[in-house]
Design a protein around this nucleic acid. Structure first.
Length: 802
DNA sequence: TCCGGCTGTTG
DNA sequence: TCTTGCAGCCGGA
């Protein structure tokens, strides 16, 4: 067979064992837009043995060789010079054949005399390949290959053997990938569906240009699952999208198909089912299965992240333009044949909105994948700490650092950032000054890291260390591992931003680079938090403590400088200062902070008006363009009823924009009277809270816990992590006894006085209290005569609405 | 009346 | 399953 050089776009890396030897599988697309599989049989698993200082490496080497087993022989033990926490160390690189044997050898080697530790034995084989070969998913490569020809086992256009390592080709082109999204609906008459008994009643698939679906005709879902499998194989997508599919759709489909006897091998290897892999995601051979919910979780502006809400918020599908069926009623739309077309439309709308959301989120995910090396299906599912860590492991490889093991540690808290007490009241013209990337810049400037930290009892030259206000000391040289990583990220971001200036914002290249710049920011900002995470390989509590102490000092000194310039400081939190805006003085302050303290500060925004209570982390303001910002108050929290949030938002608007407390009072009264008349829909009375633990783990009977138990008693399944939506109904006794799941309640049952006294009034008073308004004024008890006028104004406002 | 459990936020 | 600081509700004593 002939040898050739192929241009190849990498999507995913996996491996399999062929004739007792591992073969790396590189899935992707070539320049001719064919689906190709590259097999690299040359790579072998290995790990490092850290030797105690002064130990004779030859004897340890011999001991290790003796452990070799015929099933996966130790091929080589090689002495290497590495660094461990910045210090030069001798280590042995032990190479074997079968990846699964690494674990076994690790345990045996650990017991040998002279061995301090075994390192990098817990890095997955395919990731090992990605790191060592410097590969980045979603990039182009030139690679010398030998054609193996089409195979009956792999569902790709062609298979090749890799002859030489891949060489990255820098290109902003993106190949034409095929994608589909899918969604299933399930029979749920008895509450939360169970795959043992409840069939799938409808499946929908959406692609760039069409939406397809199949609704079950009988209670057997054989036809529906068959249709799903055939359609996926026929469309042969590179990317498969779902919404919460790793938690629901995939496990459900797999369990149902197993019961029915269909082999759900929808991937690019015949006979292989989707399997549950790292970070709880489902891995489909040769395809990237992306759960869009993982990305939606990061949009913190959306409180309840249902597919409808997210699609509506991001404007890809407005709620009023689609069919919506309450989750617990889905079965009804199947049981009644005349409603099945509605069910189909609902299912199709879900699949389509998932596809449209994917178009927004996936490009960003691809860039995170490019930076961290984690394939796209995992990078979404991986928590931030792991994303940072994979990125750091790539850096470690490039600077010859050994990767520390993960170790169990007990949680040790430390002092965090500074938060100033705000000056209460309404302020005009307030500038918000932000330190740019404060923590990353502190880490860079003071060379912070576990490798530069001077530990108790260690010798150091006082001229050669930075001393943090917390007392911790860091060597000025050599460059800390975190500094290398952060400098690289910040420089990359600057570079990208410069390139963006030359590009047309509507071009695809702009989009790619803009997503990459955001991904870089995410990784850089997470470095500080990563250090203080006990689960981190490069954990360093002292480092995190030192960073926050430098941060507090920076803010305190900046306040001093501001005061010296005659600027009034209203508030500040972590890396921001709120000052009364005086253009000249603020510009001067920015300059002085830069000169004297060595940090960059920017005006983030200017508020025309800004309102504070005495509480920290809560304020509301109007920006120069007339937008209202609400921070921290009930209106932006998920655990207050919609009606209370609406009232508070409106009150803030009336008070700040129009300066009209009277109107605000009337508005609140109007809402209260509507509530009493039962004119507020129950959806606006729901209070949402997350179950952060299992039901039996709670020490106290909180309302949402009690509501959850109520649902469980009626056959609904409630799990840790679920959002519980409840309402307070009439009755006596503790609130928790009167908290009921909202979908099992009606407006007639609602305890309106609870909503008035504990939701609407407190939310309104939080603001109005500072303008001399009393509770009684909101309830209308203050003046008898007012009651007269109230009727009038109520009628008026009703007229206006009509 | 006060404290601790709990949740959701903030930067 | 990146950090700490903070507000405020509710149950329980």
């Amino acid at each position: 067979m002939k040898e050739e050089t192929m241009r190849f776009y990498l999507l995913d890396v996996s491996y399999e064992t062929e004739m007792s030897k591992p073969v790396i599988l590189l899935w992707g697309v070539n320049e001719g837009n064919e689906r190709v599989l590259l097999k690299d049989p040359r790579f072998r698993p290995y790990f490092y043995v850290l030797l105690r200082e002064g130990v004779d490496s030859v004897s340890v080497k011999n001991e290790i060789m003796k452990l070799s087993k015929p099933k996966s022989p130790i091929i080589s033990v090689e002495e290497v010079k590495k660094k461990y926490f910045g210090r030069p160390r001798s280590a042995l690189k032990v190479t074997t054949v079968i990846p699964e044997y690494v674990r076994e050898y690790r345990e045996l080697v650990r017991t040998i005399d002279g061995v301090e530790d075994v390192l990098e034995a817990d890095i997955r084989f395919s990731m090992r390949y990605i790191i060592d070969k410097g590969l980045k998913p979603h990039a182009w490569y030139d690679v010398k290959v030998k054609e193996l020809g089409k195979s009956p086992v792999y569902r790709v256009d062609n298979v090749y053997e890799v002859l030489e390592d891949l060489r990255e080709v820098h290109s902003d082109e993106r190949p034409e990938l095929r994608a589909l999204s899918f969604d299933i609906e399930v029979y749920n008459k008895s509450g939360t569906p169970r795959p043992e008994s409840d069939p799938i009643i409808s499946v929908a698939i959406a692609t760039r240009d069409k939406v397809m679906s199949k609704v079950a005709e009988t209670k057997s879902d054989l036809e529906v699952i068959k249709w799903f499998k055939e359609t996926v194989l026929e469309l042969d997508p590179d990317l498969v999208y779902g919404y919460n599919c790793n938690n629901f759709d995939w496990p459900y489909l797999i369990e149902r198909s197993k019961r029915i006897g269909i082999k759900l091998d929808v991937g690019r290897k015949v006979g292989v089912l989707p399997t549950s892999g790292a970070y709880g995601h489902y891995s489909i051979p040769g395809r990237l299965n992306v759960d869009i919910y993982d990305f939606a979780k990061d949009v913190y502006e959306i409180k309840v992240k249902t597919l409808e809400n997210v699609a509506d918020y991001l404007g890809v599908m407005k709620k009023e333009d689609r069919v919506i069926i309450p989750g617990h009623e889905i079965y009804k739309y199947w049981e009644d044949p005349s409603l099945r077309e509605t069910l189909r439309k609902y299912n199709e709308a879900d699949a389509l909105s998932t596809y449209l959301l994917a178009e927004i989120f996936v490009p960003f995910g691809e860039q995170l994948s490019y930076l961290t090396g984690l394939p796209l299906d995992q990078v979404g599912a991986a928590p931030v700490g792991f994303k940072v860590e994979w990125y750091l492991m790539r850096i470690a490889y490039s600077v010859n650092e050994l990767v520390p093991n993960r170790v169990e540690r007990k949680v040790q808290s430390y002092k965090g950032a500074i938060v100033l007490k705000p000056i209460r009241g309404v302020h005009e013209n307030v500038a918000v000054l932000d330190f740019s990337s404060m923590y990353p810049n502190i880490m860079i400037k003071y060379n912070v890291g576990p490798d530069t930290l001077v530990r108790p009892g260690e010798k150091y030259d006082p001229n050669d260390v930075y001393v943090a206000p917390s007392g911790h000391k860091f060597r000025k040289r050599p460059d800390a591992f975190f500094k290398i990583s952060l400098v690289q990220l910040l420089e990359l971001r600057k570079e990208i931003k410069n390139k963006l200036k030359e590009l047309d914002p509507s071009s695809p290249q702009y989009k790619i680079l803009d997503d990459r710049q955001k991904a870089v920011k995410v990784l850089a900002n997470a470095h500080y938090g990563y250090m203080g995470w006990p689960h981190a390989r490069w954990y360093c509590r002292e480092c995190a403590e030192a960073v926050t102490s430098w941060g507090r000092k920076l803010i305190t000194e900046s306040i001093e400088l501001a005061r010296k310039l005659g600027l009034k400081v209203i508030y500040g939190d972590t890396d921001s200062l709120f000052v009364i805006y005086d253009k000249e003085k603020v510009e001067k302050l920015i300059k002085v902070i830069e000169e004297k303290l060595g940090f960059e500060v920017k005006i983030d925004k200017i508020y025309k008006k800004l309102f504070f209570t005495e509480a920290k982390k809560r304020y509301a303001g109007i920006t120069q363009d007339g937008r209202i910002d609400i921070v921290g108050f009930e209106a932006v929290r998920g655990d207050w009823a919609e009606i209370a949030k609406e009232v508070q938002e409106k009150v803030i608007e009336l008070v700040l924009k129009e300066g009209d407390t009277k109107k605000a009072i009337e508005y609140v009264r109007d809402v209260i009277s509507k509530l009493k008349k039962g004119q507020i829909p129950i959806e606006k009375l729901v209070i949402w809270k997350t179950l952060e633990k299992r039901l039996d783990e709670y020490k106290v009977e909180a309302p949402h816990v009690s509501a959850a138990k109520y649902a469980v008693e009626r056959g609904y399944e409630v799990r840790k992590g679920d959002k519980i939506g409840y309402v307070i109904v009439k009755g006596a006794g503790k609130l928790s006894k009167r908290a009921k799941p909202w979908f099992l309640s009606s407006v007639e049952e609602i305890d309106t006085s609870y909503y008035i006294d504990h939701q609407i009034i407190p939310a309104a008073m939080r603001i109005l209290g500072y303008f001399g308004v009393t509770e009684d004024m909101l309830k209308g008890r203050a003046y008898g005569l007012m009651a007269f006028f109230r009727k009038e104004s109520e009628n008026e406002s009703k007229d206006k609405r009509a």
